[in-house]
Nucleic acid binder design. Structure first.
Length: 329
DNA sequence: ACGCAGGGCGATA
DNA sequence: TATCGCCCTGCG
């Protein structure tokens, strides 16, 4: 089945920049594959795996968004539309956000640098958890590659004209994968094939020491931390249950809450957000991550997640990061 | 080449 | 309760 429809800019509040939103390195999921003018990803909609393709005319933030969806089963257009809106942050009111940023002189400059930038929500919460664990102490390109490797090795493949796409493996599958090549080798016992290459283990995906965290986290997600219950919890309860997962500290927990479950008041503090908050709000005096987190949540309230996203993008583009780096020397 | 960046953890006082 | 060295990989 193939569905094609438009989302007009009148259907959401504020601008939207598809390219910027997908490429801004948010830890919800790797950037979508770009092919033939479309950003593409396999997304589960109403229980069916659907290839979703999204296209926006270049450099026109008010152009209608073109969506094409392909799947085996029939999927209701309204369901696809609502999934796309959720993932691309089209339900967020950027006019309202900008009004908030406008009132604060420290944040006002972010507006011009972040036109149309929206929170890129996870289409799969479990994938978001593993992405966020993989992102800790790690560069964007590397964790993007790791997640794509994991999908290729243990996900289910779906073939389309534009290429093969893979689901993210379930917790049940991921908790049982070998951690490193030695463990993979042991599965063969004495029927070890000659010249066999061991590349179906987690370490081979470049996740490093996080491999055992990922396996344990998958096991806990299957047995203890029920994802569907997360949505009903208060922010604090949800935070406290996530932090129980290995490899999940405050920063990663806040990323999962923000991108995976839509808790907009989460304020994930990595070293750079810490430094930027210090620079913008404390005259460059060093603020420790836990204090920056509390400050952000109290000061930005329901806008905290967006402020974090905008602050970082602004700091990169405006040269603030370069300025901070120079001053460290 | 080789030292450093990046978040979480477990040991230390 | 706060601080510190270590984990792994990619980059300058």
């Amino acid at each position: 089945m193939k569905t094609r429809f438009l989302i007009d800019s009148k259907e959401y509040k504020g601008q939207f920049d598809l390219d910027l939103t997908i490429k801004s390195g948010q830890t919800s999921q790797p950037a979508w594959r770009y092919n033939d003018g479309y950003f593409q990803e396999l997304v589960e909609v109403e229980g069916s795996n659907c290839l979703i393709k999204a296209k926006q005319k270049h450099n026109d933030l008010d152009a209608p968004l073109e969506i094409v969806a392909e799947s085996m089963e029939d999927v209701d257009e309204e369901s696809i539309r609502s999934a796309v809106r959720e993932i691309l942050g089209l339900n967020d009111d950027l006019n309202d956000l900008n009004a908030f940023l406008e009132k604060e002189f420290q944040l006002k400059p972010t507006i011009d640098f972040c036109k149309g930038l929206r929170l890129f929500r996870a289409h799969n919460p479990f994938e978001c958890i593993i992405s966020s664990i993989s992102s800790a102490n790690c560069s964007i390109i590397r964790w993007n590659r790791s997640i794509n490797d994991i999908k290729k090795k243990w996900g289910k493949d779906y073939r389309f004209k534009s290429g093969t796409f893979y689901t993210f493996p379930t917790p049940e599958i991921l908790k049982n994968v070998p951690e490193h090549d030695l463990e993979e080798m042991q599965q063969f016992e004495d029927n070890l094939p000659n010249k066999f290459i061991f590349d179906k283990n987690l370490k081979s995906c470049g996740v490093g020491y996080r491999a055992k965290f990922i396996i344990k986290a998958a096991e806990m997600v299957e047995n203890e931390l029920i994802l569907s219950k997360m949505y009903k919890k208060s922010y604090e309860d949800a935070f406290n249950s996530l932090i129980e997962l290995p490899g999940v500290g405050p920063k990663v927990a806040d990323c999962i809450l923000l991108y995976g479950f839509g808790y907009k008041k989460a304020f994930p503090v990595d070293v750079w957000i810490g430094r930027i908050v210090s620079e913008l709000y404390f005259n460059g005096k060093e603020i420790k991550p836990p204090q920056a987190r509390v400050f952000g949540m109290e000061h930005f309230g329901e806008y905290a997640g967006y402020v974090q996203l905008y602050m970082f993008h602004y700091a990169r583009k405006s040269g603030l990061i370069d300025f901070i780096k120079k001053n460290k020397l």
